[in-house]
Write a protein that binds this DNA or RNA. Structure first.
Lengths: 288, 288
DNA sequence: CGCCAATTTGAGTCCCATCAATATTTGTGG
DNA sequence: CCACAAATATTGATGGGACTCAAATTGGCG
């Protein structure tokens, strides 16, 4: 967090830089080249890139450490290499509002570009290894490698789409559906990272989950218990097992205990009749 | 309410282009140059730009017309020059979820960059004049004018921040606060466009407002009536007057209906007034 | 004028927040 | 290593805010 000035030099001056690198390595820092960063972001690396041309510094954060603050002058983007993070707003009353739970491959700080000050706060949920991307380097790369500019727009567009999905979820779904989707989404993320998408443990508190989903921590806890009793998941503290991902994904609301069986029949009946072509936007618009 | 587009004067230099332009003009098309587009987006125009170098076509949409669909192949961005638009998601059950109400100076279609297909639907709420920006032109401009690339990142970042604010609002505020903020935000938008920020009329239905805010149309209607009775606004159908913007902005939750109706609730009323000077954020949090 | 969409308003219900008590886990220092 | 404190989770009881269902009214438009 301290000497960011040294890393804004894209080109490495071998003699001096290698000394510094050794020093950084001792405190847990590493360097990644452009190809590695692109792979992490799941975007195609420019063929023209020289692996040693541009290097990006790693920085480690311990659980609980703040990565950037609201209002802080913006100059670098962060890419999560390992570990778990939360980003949040703090409203005029001091209440925290969790906005996202970035993990491996996610990028932080984009919201700072607009006003050149970070618009959100980022805090490490676990020990993290973050890659620093000075914004100036970021912008310069777009001009050097045309394909990269396209990829950078794509990454920002993806973030916008993700937030749109979040808005839809927040304003349309019941508490049970929110929690169910949260778990399945998390599972998919873990799968992509090479871990089990079925069995994992949460890195965040019920409070943080509730804030993220627009619920209270008690409702989150109760909902997890309910999903547990219904056999869709098993949960003990932060240890989660997804037992019926299909049911979780299609869950809209937990029917009142008396009618639970009936509604389940209805849904399956509709699906069988092809009236609910789920998760296919093309078809659902055709219905109108 | 209709034709604001006198500011876009087509410049013609080529013979072929002028023929086409005449044809387009007959169906209501005009052209804007890069400088005019930048002004509309409120970003600095590159000094190196030749006014005749790149021209952007206008297209008019009538109220109710669709501008782009979900899943449609993405190739152009749209900038609102005049008129009002709504963008929306359609979930797997066919329910509409309004995402934004773009107006003059707003950009549409960014969500299509990621997958090269639009992720949302855009519909004109009134007659509209839209400027077409082919995505290829957009990308090429960033490479030609370095300042523009920065501005384009900034515009996308601004969109991300806007959606973050939306997420915070959806998950933390009461129905009254949502409606109140919606109105004050609209007022500010109208002010920026040169209209009255105090007195305006809504271009969208209660249904659409409710979808946008995560409420039902009945709740929106009831809330507007309540704000009307409290003297914060006056509302008749879609005609809105903001009478106390300060109160609206700081509104968290309406006092319980009992306290409003029971005029002669003696001591308790006074106590409530002292302890709960409603729509005063400072004090109401101090109580918590 | 007549039709249909939009809006308003009412009555009843339920989901979720709130308040509260307890249990369990984590962290810390002696 | 244990004890104690603080943080985190679970579970219950209760009330209220927003949804649902329903009816009446208004306004727009062919």
């Amino acid at each position: 967090m301290s000497n960011l000035s040294t890393l804004s030099q894209p080109k490495r001056n071998v003699d001096i830089a290698s000394q510094q690198e050794t020093a950084w390595r001792q405190q847990g820092s590493l360097w990644s080249n452009l190809r590695q960063v692109c792979e992490l972001l799941a975007i195609p690396a420019p063929a023209t890139a020289d692996d040693e041309d541009t290097l990006f510094q790693h920085v480690r954060y311990k659980a609980g450490q703040r990565i950037h603050r609201i209002g802080q002058a913006f100059d670098t983007l962060y890419i999560v290499n390992s570990g778990f993070v939360k980003t949040l707003h703090i409203d005029e009353f001091g209440n925290e509002q969790v906005l996202s739970f970035p993990m491996k491959g996610d990028i932080l700080g984009i919201d700072g570009i607009h006003k050149q000050h970070y618009a959100s706060e980022a805090v490490a949920l676990s020990d993290c290894d973050m890659i620093l991307v000075p914004y100036k380097t970021f912008a310069a790369l777009g001009r050097i490698h045309c394909e990269l500019e396209q990829a950078m727009f794509s990454v920002m567009s993806r973030e916008i789409v993700r937030e749109q999905m979040m808005i839809s979820m927040l304003s349309a779904l019941s508490a049970e559906a929110k929690v169910a989707r949260f778990l399945t989404n998390l599972g998919e993320r873990f799968s992509q990272m090479g871990y089990s998408g079925r069995s994992f443990n949460l890195r965040m508190t019920r409070q943080e989950i509730g804030s993220y989903l627009g619920l209270t921590l008690e409702t989150v806890s109760r909902t997890l218990s309910a999903l547990n009793e219904l056999g869709m998941i098993s949960v003990e503290q932060r240890e989660i097992n997804l037992l019926d991902t299909a049911a979780l994904k299609s869950l809209r609301r937990l029917p009142p205990a008396k009618a639970r069986n009936k509604v389940a029949e209805k849904v399956t009946a509709l699906v069988n009749k092809n009236l609910l072509p789920q998760w296919n936007p093309e078809l659902s618009t055709a219905i109108n």
